[in-house]
Design a protein around this nucleic acid. Structure first.
Lengths: 340, 340
DNA sequence: TCGATTTATCGATGCGTATCGACGATGCGT
DNA sequence: ACGCATCGTCGATACGCATCGATAAATCGA
């Protein structure tokens, strides 16, 4: 492997000059820059990351703490991971995976060994055991998700309250006065992420101001529970029933339960789910969706932490950014009455 | 951040002694070891990764090249990633994400900058553009998947041929003489991964030796295509029909298509799918599965490359490891006739 | 034309660890 | 008691790069 010294020798300059050509931190004449760049090209020189980290006290690596494999939600998780990694590259950073099974000790390790310049924590819970540790680490930490006490922390998440609001308003404007919301699966709810509450709060508030009645039903991974909820919901509704199912697994089960009862989304019943546009269009009846914008959340998360890494001021930051959600009409919801 | 020099000072020894206590590469008296360990504890010393990499020419990081986000198969992908990261930790290594959108240049980068000691390539295609590059990198590379020409490369994958064989034998022993296999989705097939072919070869060979007739049907993401295949398959079968659907998405669609026709798995029809035991049990009718053992593949992949990293001999290795698949009877297939 | 600036480059040093050779201390046999 | 191997520790050096101060060269003003 060629070193910057080799490059310097090939270009007939000092090693430090090579370094300055690369970093641009001192003026370099056009002539020597050309020489150095030619030498770099010829030797296919690439700076050694370890040496760079040692001398520059910067690794340009961000640790990504992924939650413990819950067998569910994996697809969604992967989308975050993938977009985070790509975006990090755009900011000239790399992503190191830190698995949850290392626990809080893992955070101390990657920061203590200075493998990472900063951390992104995914799936932050209401009372997350990692937070006390995160607060004491002397590196920027970015949370995806909002804990009960976000003081002294930098958080970002989808605006679930807005999502709940949008769903209710949308159904209300389509003429529904009763809406049934089916919660996330117990596996999600029990993890004590609070976006469930935020969503419901947004929905309830909107419903109250619009005079819409909202029924809540527990989520469940198996058909029986959902079927039961559907029956209760149908019994409690006059006119065309409306369902909101923000959990992807739930919405699949819901669709089957409705089909089994001879109800067609967009005709006899309105359904709002959550899915990427692509997947939504692939449904038997294209699904109206509330888009929680995982990609945008991921992108902003990376941007925020990279900004923090640039301005290396040590003062503990604190901020809370909510990414607006987007509701999209497709065939699974009734159209609003003409003129409304 | 304390350094090994600080530790040395606190313990009243030389810095090199601290290093030897940590590495164990030279004998250290019980007494000074205790002193040093106490100092490490007290200062919460952790060795600097950059310095370590520089001096030891080893980063203890493995690059994991994840395929370009295909919107499908994400859950399965995440399972690999998660297990790989955990297993790497057991071998005292970390995982750096390398996204496919950097292309082959990404491989050169992470190796050239010596961010990684080795690479794991996921989802290797038949004629993978990354392979020529991989062969010239002077670090161990481990492929998950088997390219057309595996010469000079180290590969591991599930034994899809065995999987095909097992499925056919299982159905044959349950009395089926005609079996319909529904291929993976076009999105998978078109990516030119060859495990599809390997599976079919195993199935066809077994079928021939057992006198079983096999019908192949294309996969498809939407219900219409699968329904059509099912109808054709039913028409072509006398007695109880049997289906094999190794693609998870397909198997979900298949189940609905069969249900719609009043066929109950395990009673009027046999179905073998692919899913984790957990998910298989959650189905309306517990699904007989062919387990492609993604976790085991991941674990072995990490073990292999870590072994290669230990024995740093430079000679280009070549090997091909196939992980045995496991077929598990559940309620969705007919029971073999008594006594067989 | 000569000193005062500015510009471009060089040499030296430090970052924190691993490793090698050296050296004093200890134990051995005779 | 003396030479000799062994054990435990130390000091010095290298790893490859970033950065600082210094210096030579070029530019400018008067």
């Amino acid at each position: 492997m060629p070193t910057s010294k080799d490059v310097a020798q090939a270009a007939g300059v000092a090693q430090s000059t090579v370094s300055y050509v690369l970093s641009g931190k001192r003026p370099i004449s056009e002539k020597t820059r050309k020489k150095v760049e030619a030498a770099i090209e010829e030797l296919t020189y690439q700076p050694n990351a370890g040496a760079r980290a040692l001398a520059g006290r910067r690794t340009r690596v961000i640790g990504l703490v992924i939650p413990f494999i819950p067998e569910l939600e994996m697809a969604s998780l992967m989308e975050f991971v993938s977009v985070i990694a790509s975006t990090a590259r755009q900011f000239d950073h790399d992503i190191l995976l830190v698995t949850e099974d290392e626990g809080a000790a893992g955070l101390r390790r990657v920061v203590g060994q200075q493998i990472c310049d900063g951390l992104i924590l995914m799936q932050v819970e209401d009372e997350d055991e990692r937070l006390p540790v995160a607060r004491t680490l002397n590196v920027p930490v970015l949370l995806i998700g909002i804990p009960r006490d976000p003081s002294g922390l930098v958080c970002i998440d989808a605006d679930f309250e807005m999502a709940g609001d949008q769903c209710i308003r949308d159904l209300a404007s389509a003429g529904h006065s009763v809406v049934s919301i089916i919660e996330w699966q117990p596996a999600v709810v029990n993890r004590h992420v609070n976006y469930v509450d935020r969503f419901m709060r947004g929905a309830d508030t909107a419903a109250e101001s619009l005079g819409v009645a909202v029924h809540h039903f527990p989520g469940g991974a198996d058909v029986a529970i959902i079927s039961e909820s559907v029956d209760k919901a149908l019994a409690a509704t006059e006119g065309v029933p409306a369902f909101i199912a923000p959990d992807r697994t739930i919405q699949d089960i819901l669709r089957r339960a409705l089909t089994a009862r001879g109800l067609t989304p967009g005709v006899d019943v309105s359904v709002i789910g959550s899915a990427s546009p692509t997947l939504a269009e692939l449904q038997p009846v294209p699904l109206s969706t509330i888009d929680l914008r995982p990609k945008e959340v991921s992108r902003r998360a990376v941007k925020i932490i990279c900004d923090l890494l640039e301005t290396e001021n040590q003062g503990p930051h604190e901020s809370l950014e909510l990414v607006p959600t987007v509701i999209t009409h497709r065939a699974s919801t009734l159209r609003p009455p003409h003129g409304s």
